[in-house]
Design a protein around this nucleic acid. Structure first.
Lengths: 215, 215
DNA sequence: AACTTGTCCTGTCATGCCGTCAGCTTACCG
DNA sequence: CGGTAAGCTGACGGCATGACAGGACAAGTT
């Protein structure tokens, strides 16, 4: 399906080429997690990969192009997140468990990919369609099934029907993303890292069901 | 209090100098709202201001330094946001009104300053202490009084005491910030811009009071 | 008006990164 | 072993950076 990997000038990349390409991506990823995005230079990435800048340009049009590649890979990875919500129950205590697992799983994914997600988030906020799409893919992996869950609860009369299911689930997912990205803010507010989940989960439960979580 | 404005090399700036300096800041602000942060160059800002790059470096150590200046100005502005919450009632319908005004006011502020806040948010996420502090100042303008409100409700037995007031209010403010910054995501979810407030406000009310909003 | 003083701006320069290309090396295949 | 395509890099023009010295300018003094 995904035609062979090609260099910028149209050659097909062989075994060795793909290795170099991958090494460049790995080094870029590393670079992004250690220095500000604005300061990431092609020459540094190339040096770290033990190759030359010219080689970088053989595989990627520019830094942004390579970042997009990493981001797309991560977006594929995010597909598994839908299992955090799909088919789960929101009734009573099992609902509390669902919300806790959702918070835990989503935060873990975001933190694991925090460096690349920072850049994706910035790009999306700046209006770049490609980054926006990637961000939506990640968010939707959870937001879509969560919207379905809210709709389901509404149709059973167990949730406020005046609310838009997409808006509610979108808001809750935005909250989780923001909390994951800016965990330090909570620390500054005196909230310990381990207290984050126990405080976010009830909010999620509350948002989805409209009810206080049972003890 | 704030000692005179000084150039990088220590001279005090006079009338004309301050004008130039201000023009550079204005152009940088403009630049940030029209092109990606990564691509903002000193030479472009200088050109737009009708001056030379060398002049820019007389007033600011680098682009980041100038951005910090703009951000600090905005942080001062954010002080007025505390009126959105301080001294407001959360009881019954007036509580609903409070939450609506909070959502409205906060979103408006964030959108008005979206370009600079994007950069601040990125810097904070990347671990830069100066940007982090500025972001906290903005968030705290609302988060602090909101935390007090939650504490107050808890002490009156009108809210779940097992929740950490700082965590709850921090989460709600994070949600608002995220919604403001990524309004387009909601549009993509089929939520119209004018439906954002009516959906966010109940969530805020719900989070603060733990109760369903009265109709 | 000429002079003085301190502010303000810019031409210029060394440095370093960007992005491209021609050309060399390496690997694979018949 | 020659042919072919992949893989890599040195070198180069172009541009941004950041520093400095010196000239332009405003305002007050004599």
């Amino acid at each position: 399906m995904t035609g062979q990997v090609r260099t910028v000038d149209g050659r097909v990349a062989g075994r060795r080429g793909q290795e170099t390409r991958q090494k460049l991506l790995d080094c870029l990823r590393e670079m992004l997690s250690t220095s500000p995005y604005r300061d990431v230079k092609v020459i540094d990435v190339a040096r770290m990969a033990g190759t030359s800048p010219a080689t970088f340009y053989q595989y990627f049009p520019d830094v942004e192009g390579a970042v997009l590649e990493i981001a797309e890979e991560m977006a594929k990875d995010s597909d598994g997140l839908k299992e955090l919500v799909a088919g789960k129950s929101w009734a009573g205590k099992s609902g509390v468990a669902t919300s806790e697992e959702l918070v835990d799983g989503f935060l873990a994914f975001w933190r694991k990919n925090d460096a690349i997600l920072r850049v994706v988030t910035l790009g999306a906020a700046e209006g770049d369609k490609r980054f926006f799409k990637i961000r939506m893919t990640v968010l939707n992996s959870v937001a879509k099934p969560l919207t379905d869950a809210v709709k389901d609860l509404q149709s059973k009369g167990q949730a406020d029907k005046t609310l838009d299911p997409a808006a509610v689930s979108g808001a809750l997912i935005s909250l989780l993303a923001s909390a994951a990205e800016h965990g330090k803010a909570f620390t500054a507010w005196g909230v310990k890292v381990k207290d984050l989940k126990p405080n976010l989960a009830p909010l999620v439960y509350l948002g989805v069901t409209g009810k206080k979580p049972p003890k």
